[in-house]
Nucleic acid binder design. Structure first.
Lengths: 342, 342
DNA sequence: ATTATAATCGAAAACGTTTTAGTTGTCAAG
DNA sequence: CTTGACAACTAAAACGTTTTCGATTATAAT
């Protein structure tokens, strides 16, 4: 069918091992032979059979990436770019990406186990990790190569890249304070989320630094669901005037959309009567009404760093487990630029 | 390292071929032996080495899916669910998905060629096909298995699944007409797009059927870019009152967002002063202001059908090339439910 | 008792590559 | 003339399966 190493050997009247070594630039083959081999390989259109090479080297040059389908009304605004960044970085190193969304944690764990045992991938990229993450635990246990977008337990030593949510929210809060806001609320996540903790911490820190009080009712812990965010925002806006926040930061653009609509429905104009900040800088954030100020994650860099880390890891060229914390960028738009009219 | 077929053979004192045949339920192996083999395989935690099996069978049980990164301000609202549907269907048949976004058509073609020759995948899934699609042309030429989300030249015989854009837009227009609208505009795509042609055809057909005139200036052909859609909508809304459309259908939700914002900026309230319909039913469509009426593509079914078709194709169990046309569903929301006040 | 038939298993090749351990031949040093 | 070093190559094993073909045994039919 397709042209193999054997065909080249036959063509030149030499052995297959000579051909293989010529193609792989072994030192113990004459440069003239190398030249001839490469020339014939080119001429016959030879391409090494990946599967055979993989069997020999017991590797697959494949990385697995799994994510969990979101709730129906949710969406992952950055999956697209994340996948692209990872796939491109992988291709640069001769790897490819195997994607397998799983509907549940258990299904995901099963798939991991299956892939580890069948040797289907050389390593994994995890995302949305959390405290006591079972995937991290399992892979550490099996000593299988992986990197993670996100942190987990501090005593688990594994390579990760994360975006500094604390610093990001601090920047956003400082931006709001600079515009004169003093009553700032935070639409946070349930305590179980480590990412949520980091981001909330940024809120608390910067408020305290600015000497601003934080009323307990300004912190709403909700799931990353539109309806929950909408309801919470309505409640915040219904507070008595002296306590009503003039700015709200939401930990997701999805939640920020709930805030925007709650404001409109409460008879307020977001961007004028209420400052709103989101997180993620989803592609549609700039098209909302008003355009949404949001924290942009350097998602392409995250993907690129993760993959190169993983490549080095499987090659054994990684002495310590790197921990990389990247900084988000505040993209200021109309939803937060109007100074607070105290 | 890991447990192979040889270990089972040694454990039971039989040959590797017997073990292999037992595991694959060959008829010429005693049922008692089968039982023992399977029991030991279970006990030792045996998993067949995929690479070895692939080399033997000269297949990879991998399907390739490539897509082109969108323009910066665009986003693919359905990539997430499409990938999920495909990956899950693939997993059910023992296949996995290799994803490799490419930045240009040429890069994509190169990657295809590379993968075909190295035998890295057993087949491809294409999407966003168009007339004279070079990918389709190449793969047909090489007789390499593939299926496509979308149609192409009528004289090219290949398996595809598509969503009936013509029928979809017809439903939407009929919905608008039923609400009393008579001046309906269409924010279409450049002529080069086959999908755009199909959808526009639905507009033209249903307008003609209803005996409604179509003024040339009601058809705006623009790229699928927010700014272009916004500008076009502003122009439509600036038409003299007698010619100004009371409803606009956009061929994408992204373009529909441009229409919504143009309406607001023109001092109109979309949903009350102007009906707007989009296409795709992006996840955020329901959260827009007002919630956007849109045509929902059965994207999960598209993905599932494509993959099962491809599985049958590579297995040679496909006599004719199937052509499947699925119907979109009109999701009616506030942006179009208020009857036109003529 | 002989032969045919079926049932069960094993030996070995094959997939295409890489790599180890030689093997040859040449040439210079002793 | 021997020895050793070196360059350039080859044979063959190995990776873990699957599958063809032949071998063995037992059973049934003649």
């Amino acid at each position: 069918m397709s042209v193999t190493i054997k065909d080249i050997a036959a063509e030149l009247g030499i052995s297959v091992s000579a051909v293989s070594k010529a193609l792989n630039n072994y030192p113990d083959v004459a440069s003239e032979t190398k030249r001839q081999v490469k020339e014939t390989a080119q001429r016959l259109g030879y391409r090494a059979n990946i599967t055979a090479r993989n069997l020999r080297a017991s590797e697959t040059r494949l990385f697995g990436y799994s994510w969990q389908p979101n709730f129906p009304d949710q969406f992952d605004p950055i999956l697209d770019r994340f996948l692209q960044a990872m796939a491109e970085a992988a291709a640069r190193h001769g790897y490819h990406l195997l994607t397998f969304p799983n509907s549940s944690v258990d299904a995901e764990l099963d798939t991991y186990a299956e892939m580890v045992r069948t040797g289907q991938v050389d390593g994994f990229v995890l995302s949305n990790t959390n405290l006591d993450d079972r995937r991290v635990h399992r892979l550490l246990e099996n000593e299988f190569p992986f990197v993670a977008f996100g942190r987990s337990n501090v005593d688990w030593d594994f390579p990760w890249v994360d975006v500094d949510g604390t610093a990001g929210v601090r920047i956003a809060i400082q931006h709001l304070i600079a515009q004169g806001h003093r009553r700032i609320a935070c639409l946070a996540w349930p305590e179980a989320s480590l990412t949520g903790q980091f981001r909330l911490q940024g809120y608390l820190e910067s408020m305290e630094e600015a000497g601003l009080p934080v009323e307990p009712e300004w912190i709403e812990r909700r799931e990353n669901v539109y309806a929950d965010a909408y309801a919470a925002a309505l409640r915040l806006l219904a507070l008595p005037a002296a306590h009503r926040p003039s700015a709200i930061i939401a930990l997701t653009d999805l939640m920020a959309m709930g805030v925007l609509n709650a404001a409109w429905d409460a008879g307020l104009e977001p961007g004028r009567d209420l400052a709103v900040v989101g997180f993620d800088d989803a592609p549609m954030a700039r098209f909302l009404r008003p355009p949404l100020t949001s924290l942009r994650q350097p998602i392409a860099e995250v993907g690129e760093r993760l993959v190169t880390m993983l490549v080095n890891l499987v090659k054994g060229q990684l002495s310590a487990k790197p921990h990389i914390l990247l900084q988000p960028e505040l993209i200021v738009r109309a939803s937060s630029i109007v100074p607070c009219s105290e």
